[in-house]
Design a protein around this nucleic acid. Structure first.
Lengths: 344, 344
DNA sequence: ACACTGACTGAAACCGGTTTCAATTTTGCG
DNA sequence: CGCAAAATTGAAACCGGTTTCAGTCAGTGT
């Protein structure tokens, strides 16, 4: 190790006890300014860095949080959603002087196993988990492990669980309402039943249709799994139904839908209008650029870290945090609104 | 904590000393099979899990490795390369019972700062770093920190540094040779000068041209930065030069190039053939699917973890590891070979 | 049977901090 | 100025393991 200087050595150099150095280190009160300054000078001069491991053993705090992403192997780093989320959490954690460790669990079985290991390791102050597979089977493990945790996305059984979610229902509602206002009549959707986000988006879509007195037709609902391929297949299945607009529940699936439409010779938005969900970078880069529902992943990550920090500090005392972040419609070419405006 | 059982408790229950339990735990010799079995039974019955922190403090090993990705903020989670690499390292680490912590440094300045912190924390057994910004300015810090480390990609000053790299030169060479063999005469490239991988790919491209007696024309060389946008701009700049084929140094840039070509009304591969590099998922999903040079990111990640583990264990004794992994050409539609075959 | 190995085992030191608690100052006030 | 209360400080215990070292015990060779 590069650092042979210990708290003991600093204490000697500053003519105080380890205890006092520790107090200075942790910004505790009850140290005379004079003494505090002297200790800090020694720390500065020696370049002393406390050994986190020892600190952790003694204080039962590691300043390490785990981000557990459990989803299909293919999925995780295919859909830009997870990388974006990972980056957001990593950055927010760093800003709070927390280290983020990343776990990617590929199969549901693996989740159980590695999660037990993660918890047992006792290394982490807390965990942030993504609510895929609806996340339910993890919850008993987490509860038993008595480890602070926060979900990103609403797990299936969300009772008494802290989570940060996007307002997916509102997302579906905004998207469908927007299409309705633009005058489309046969509005289909490519939904997903993988997790609560998918359910909510679908339910928002249905609500918008219902509120506008439009029939909800099962033939206009395709079910995908967030993959590009499933968007492609979903669109192919919908084509014979002659929809004039489609709400696709994720940008990635929308890219697949775009391909299906191009292959079928349908123009977007002239023949079929599209609104998708997420507003990840590919949405803006698609051809045509996608009108989409923006969920602010950075904020989601930041809130998750923040909330986890609170859980860690306050424990049971913290009132239940179930935070739903707003979403907004981002207007681009794929919904046809811009064209209509231009010709109007 | 869920686990109130300590090594002490196990020792009492098994009627032995902490020392013996520790020996059993670590598979040390000098424990009678009989005793060993008894201890193991108690461990099994109690579900005892050693506290890693304590173990680490005593043994100076954390079983945590850091993956440090330093690149432009936008870049890191935009190009699927990094997510793929992250996943590969995370998985390989997990297989070796190592925890991977992820650090994303956005600016070069930030690298220096956070790297010092990371090293000083003393939390990590070793680091895997990506060689962006050519990675040079990190090396002195790492050396001073006396922390085991391995690069993925070849840093600018690679003397005496362990690294795992793809055979990028061969990648550029294979791509260009392939296009030459298909009969293209005006073969352009969209290269990158960001890191050694970019340099090498360009140099392989040049070598192939030279070996086939073709002139190397600077007007046919555009410089990008691995982003989709830079591929788009690069292609636009090249179009007036009328290339009949382009080697694009990354899949992501190739997607940008595709868009530029589509906008210009040029068909791929009929008017302009494309070969790209990396073979990430989007390459297969592009329209048309991209012929590309496959680098096996999973293997790269696995070798990096493996090598780092060796460095950690053997230290100076380990001979210099500079591993170059082979690449291969993946044939798809964008190069025109399939069409030519069909019509032949 | 006897000294002599070498395999087992446990006591205690140690890793480098934090935290408790009692001792020692200081400070505040009457 | 004197005394109780509050603020400082340091000694020692503790976190939960690993490792050193010396002692114990069984197995050998003679």
């Amino acid at each position: 190790m590069s650092n042979k200087i210990t708290i003991q050595r600093v204490a000697e150099l500053a003519n105080v006890s380890k205890s006092t150095v520790s107090r200075v280190l942790n910004n505790y009160p009850h140290v005379r300014p004079h003494v505090r300054a002297r200790v800090q000078r020694v720390i500065g001069e020696t370049g002393y860095q406390p050994n986190n491991i020892a600190r952790l053993l003694a204080s039962d705090r590691s300043s390490i949080i785990g981000l557990v992403i459990s989803s299909d192997a293919q999925m995780v780093f295919r859909d830009p959603y997870f990388p974006a989320l990972t980056e957001a959490v990593s950055t927010s954690a760093a800003a709070k002087d927390l280290v983020m460790a990343l776990f990617v669990s590929h199969s549901e079985k693996q989740v159980r196993h590695s999660l037990s290991g993660i918890i047992a390791a006792g290394l982490f102050d807390g965990l942030i988990l993504t609510a895929d597979f609806k996340g339910d089977e993890m919850i008993p493990l987490l509860r038993a492990g008595e480890i602070p945790f926060v979900f990103i996305g609403r797990p299936g059984a969300a009772d008494g669980i802290h989570y940060i979610d996007a307002d997916n229902r509102q997302g579906g509602y905004l998207a469908a309402s927007h299409l309705i206002k633009l005058g489309y009549r046969r509005i289909a959707t490519i939904a997903s039943a993988q997790n609560s986000a998918g359910d909510d988006r679908l339910s928002g879509y249905k609500q918008a249709l219902a509120e506008h007195g439009m029939p909800i037709c099962d033939a206009l609902i395709a079910i995908g799994d967030y993959s590009l391929g499933s968007g492609y297949r979903g669109m192919k299945a919908l084509l014979p139904r002659q929809p004039d607009a489609v709400f696709v529940a994720s940008d990635t699936m929308a890219l697949g839908a775009l391909r299906a439409l191009r292959e079928a010779g349908r123009r977007v938005p002239a023949d079929v209008a599209l609104v998708s969900h997420d507003d990840l970078p590919p949405a803006a880069q698609a051809d045509p650029p996608l009108t989409t529902i923006r969920q602010t992943i950075n904020k989601t990550g930041a809130r998750a870290v923040e909330t986890l920090a609170q859980v860690i500090n306050e424990g049971e005392a913290l009132p239940l945090q179930q935070i739903v972040l707003p979403v907004e419609l981002v207007l681009r070419a794929s919904c046809g609104a811009l064209q209509k405006q231009a010709t109007a």
